[in-house]
Every structure is written in structure tokens, then in C-alpha cells.
Simulated scan of single mutants.
Amino acid sequence: MTSTHTPPHIRLANEIAAQFQRRDPADAARAIADHIQSFWDPRMRIRLIAAAQDSGSGLDPLAVAAAALLPPPVDRHAEPRPSPAGL
């Protein structure tokens, strides 16, 4: 049986994008990205960024544009970089 469940990060991004449809696309994408950066859990942001790279994800084009404006995810498990000598 096939599920028609839309993942939360896609559903929410599309709902936010729907609120900005009448704005200039560049301004709308920036406002959506600002909202996502401010209020979304980092794990959902990571999923959104990954989904935006998949043309079959079902994301609204404004949500895709907003995802492209988000900073890349930080790997919190990466080894810390040593600081330069003397600092």
C-alpha cells in the first residue's frame, strides 16, 4: 500500500510559502528563509535543504528558493578544528 503522507518539513514549508505568494519572489524567499532559520528545529532545516535538491519532492518553488538561502547545516559531531598557534 502506498502512503500519501507528506513529510512535515515539506507540508510546513509549502504552507509558509502559500502565505507569501503575492510578494516579490526574492523578498518572499528571504522572508521564508528567515522564518525557517529562526523557528525551525535544525533537523527539519536539514531535511528541507535535502528535499529542495530533489525536483520530485513536492516543494513549492518559493520554498525551494528559501531553502537555497539557508546556511549549510553544521555537523555538531565533527572534530573541532585546532586554533592557530599563539591564539
Results as ranks from 00 to 15, higher is better:
M1V: 12
T2E: 12
T2Q: 11
T2S: 13
T2D: 12
S3L: 09
T4H: 14
H5L: 13
T6N: 06
P8G: 03
P8S: 05
H9W: 10
I10D: 03
I10W: 00
R11P: 04
R11D: 13
R11M: 10
R11L: 14
L12P: 06
L12F: 13
L12M: 12
L12S: 11
A13G: 05
A13H: 02
N14I: 08
A17V: 01
A18D: 09
A18V: 02
A18N: 08
F20W: 09
F20R: 10
Q21M: 09
Q21R: 15
R22T: 15
R22S: 15
R23L: 15
R23P: 00
D24N: 15
P25D: 00
A26V: 10
D27R: 15
D27S: 14
D27K: 15
A28V: 05
A31T: 12
A33H: 07
A33E: 06
D34F: 11
D34V: 07
D34T: 11
H35K: 07
I36L: 08
I36Y: 03
Q37G: 07
Q37A: 15
S38T: 11
F39S: 08
F39P: 01
F39H: 14
F39D: 10
D41Y: 10
P42G: 05
P42R: 13
R43V: 14
R43L: 14
R43I: 12
R43W: 14
R43T: 13
M44K: 13
R45H: 03
R45A: 05
I46Q: 13
I46L: 11
I46S: 10
R47E: 12
R47N: 08
L48T: 02
I49H: 06
A50M: 06
A50K: 12
A51P: 09
A51F: 03
A52H: 05
A52K: 06
Q53E: 14
Q53M: 08
D54I: 05
D54G: 01
S55V: 11
G56I: 04
G56H: 09
G56P: 00
S57H: 00
S57K: 00
G58R: 03
G58S: 04
G58E: 03
G58L: 03
L59Q: 03
L59M: 06
L59V: 06
D60N: 09
D60H: 12
P61L: 05
L62P: 01
A63N: 00
A63Y: 00
A63W: 01
A63S: 08
V64K: 11
A65F: 01
A65S: 07
A66I: 00
A67K: 02
A67G: 04
A67F: 03
A68H: 12
A68R: 14
A68L: 08
L69K: 09
L70S: 02
L70M: 02
L70N: 02
L70P: 02
P71F: 06
D75T: 03
D75P: 01
R76K: 10
R76Y: 12
R76H: 12
H77Q: 14
E79S: 10
E79A: 14
P80H: 05
P80W: 01
R81M: 11
S83I: 08
S83T: 11
P84Y: 03
P84G: 03
P84V: 06
A85R: 11
A85M: 09
A85Q: 10
